[in-house]
Amino acid sequence: MKKHNQSQNEFERIERYLTGRMDNKEKLDFEASLKTDPLLSKQTEEVRALLHAIEEKKLREKLDDFHEELTAGERRVMSVRPFQKYIIAASVALLIGLGIWLLSVRKTPDEKLFSQYFKPDPGLITPMSTTSDYEFYRGMVDYKQGKYKPAINRWNRLIEKKPDNDTLNFYLGVSYLAGGNSKKATDFLSKAVKYPNSILINEAWYYLGLAYLKEGNSREAIRSFRKSDLEESKLILKEMEE
């Protein structure tokens, strides 16, 4: 059996088909050729298996990581005995005593803790009929679908007009954080925590803490988590103080 060479164009055409990046016409043409061209159909099945394999391999690795995190957490919970509280307290004091430099070098565990805890706020319920704040809720729809960039674009236009809106500052911050920009996230969330009467105040401190964690600034992160009443804040503080 001879080796079937596949040109870059041929490969990319199959790839476009399998990843849903063809427009309607190209897709119909491709599907027609699939029926008449056994080599193309064989190669398409092969590429499909390869793409599937790459994703599944990586996913299996991740699942083992999650499992590890889960069981590590259980072991830790079971192993905390009363006297250990004093050790924990003592190490917290020691840690604070050692100063900022020590905390700032702990970048990797911070990152890990961040990704373990971070998940975007569920967002606000989008009203179906009111027209006021339309732009804000259009952004919320994008946000809830995980499309952070379009949400950020919409809200950035709004915040120029309403720089003091706690909700806007909060969701812009969380969106930037979800999109990986922790610097921008700390900027907006630092503004969002300036409104003590906001309904999102505990969330705002929590996400500000996470943003600092992502930045590798554990000291500010701890300071922020302490101001939040959320269960998550307490959990993460416990982990950080161990």
Partner: peptide, 10 residues
């Protein structure tokens, strides 16, 4: 394949 979603489901 967002990590937070996979982790949450797990």
């Amino acid at each position: 394949n967002e990590e937070w979603a996979l982790r949450t489901l797990y």
